[in-house]
Design a protein around this nucleic acid. Structure first.
Length: 363
DNA sequence: TCAGATGATAAACGCCACTA
DNA sequence: TAGTGGCGTTTATCATCTGA
């Protein structure tokens, strides 16, 4: 009886040690050696010989997808690249769901190498949701992220371009980019581009970068890049550059980084959502005498702001700044011209007739 | 200067004895 | 009886030497 108990204690020790070993073996292409594993286990308090580690590895290769690179000594041990993750305790349903959401929505932003590393976790999450049964599996069908604006198709990005650029961004190295500007027939070459950040805006991925020795950040669109070549030269970051501050300045909305004090009159129903999702920290909403709502807020002056206001149609009226009001009035005039003309007239005249419609429109 | 030979060292593995 | 340590053998790698 006492002997059996001692054997069981030994078995438990062996299982714990082998479990520790499995945790210490990296995923391919990273490898570890028997000596490294042995040193690591000894450090963790498992006083065994290297010979035992060798035997353990040999045994574990049968039930687990382990690889031994025997092309040279010492052998390199690793988990197979496609091996499922080894996690105890297993993923909870909410963790599995989170992984699925991450996979769906961050895939365009994650470097291919990072995605490859996370692939086993994604597979584990999918398996966890699948094994939860039909009722729980429907979780996946119950959660969606939708765009508040018109959905556009994602433009294709060359995998090699994306891989090289992400790698350079991760390791802070300069790149050479062949870039096809819209309307151009042949690409131009930017010799030494300093990647500073990556921003997804709707369906488009932008590289925030500097080049030509300028410190003012510039935007390049990933799907217009024809080739990206990594350079062995470190990135020089502008000392005061901050990606969050850059985005907050409104540059991603195609502005000049200026802010304006906006006064906008909105129909009450159109203004309702601003009570829950304000335009800015200092936003003020004031009812007007004609039943509308006066919105005052400090916002970046961008094209995106104009598109947002135009999206309300006749329900929005810009009061201040005057410059923006005039721009909106101009857009409205042109719209009235377009919609006032018969489609046949537009086809015949190319851009339509103006006279009577121009006169009929009163700001 | 370079290719081949040689020796030292390290790693892998087989085998045997011990132990709980 | 399974797990382990330890020893001997085999093999690979690397540094050094030698001769063309």
């Amino acid at each position: 009886m006492r002997a059996r108990r001692a054997v069981m204690a030994g078995e438990r020790e062996t299982i714990l040690r082998q479990w520790e070993m499995l945790r210490r073996i990296p995923r391919y292409p990273v490898k570890t050696t028997t000596a490294e594993l042995h040193a690591s286990l000894v450090k963790a308090g498992y006083q065994v010989t290297k010979r035992t580690v060798e035997r353990d590895l040999e045994r574990l290769t049968v039930p687990f997808p382990l690889l031994a690179d025997e092309r040279s000594k010492p052998f390199g041990w690793s988990w197979r690249a496609d091996a499922p993750g080894l996690t105890i305790p297993g993923l909870t349903l909410s963790q599995a769901l989170t992984f699925q959401l991450v996979e769906q929505h961050l895939r365009p932003l994650l470097p291919p190498a990072v995605l490859a590393e996370l692939q086993p976790a994604f597979a584990l999450a999918a398996a966890r949701l699948a094994e939860a049964g039909p009722t729980r599996r429907s979780w996946v069908d119950k959660v969606r992220v939708v765009s508040p604006t018109q959905t556009l198709r994602v433009p294709p990005i060359a995998p090699e371009v994306q891989r090289t650029l992400y790698e350079a961004l991760l390791t802070d190295h300069q790149v050479q980019i062949r870039y096809l500007k819209p309307g151009e027939k042949s690409p131009i070459t930017y010799e030494a581009v300093h990647p500073l950040g990556l921003v997804q805006r709707g369906a488009v991925l932008y590289l925030v970068c500097t080049f030509f020795g300028y410190t003012d950040p510039f935007l390049l669109v990933l799907h217009r890049m024809k080739t990206v070549t990594a350079l062995e030269v470190p990135v020089v970051r502008p000392p005061d550059f901050d990606l969050d501050a850059y985005i907050a300045s409104g540059r991603m909305g195609f502005g000049e980084g200026k802010t304006i004090r906006l006064e906008l009159w909105l129909d009450a129903d159109a203004a309702r959502h601003l009570t829950e999702t304000p335009l800015s920290e200092d936003q003020r909403l004031t009812p007007t005498c004609d039943g509308r709502v006066q919105v005052n807020a400090t916002v970046p002056e961008t094209e995106q702001l104009r598109w947002w206001i135009l999206g309300f149609g006749e329900k929005a009226e810009v009061v201040k700044p005057i410059r923006l009001r005039k721009a909106m009035a101009g857009t409205a005039r042109n719209l009235a011209l377009r919609y006032g003309a018969e489609p046949r007239q537009i086809n015949a005249a190319g851009n339509g007739a103006h006279g009577s419609i121009e006169e009929a429109w009163r700001p």
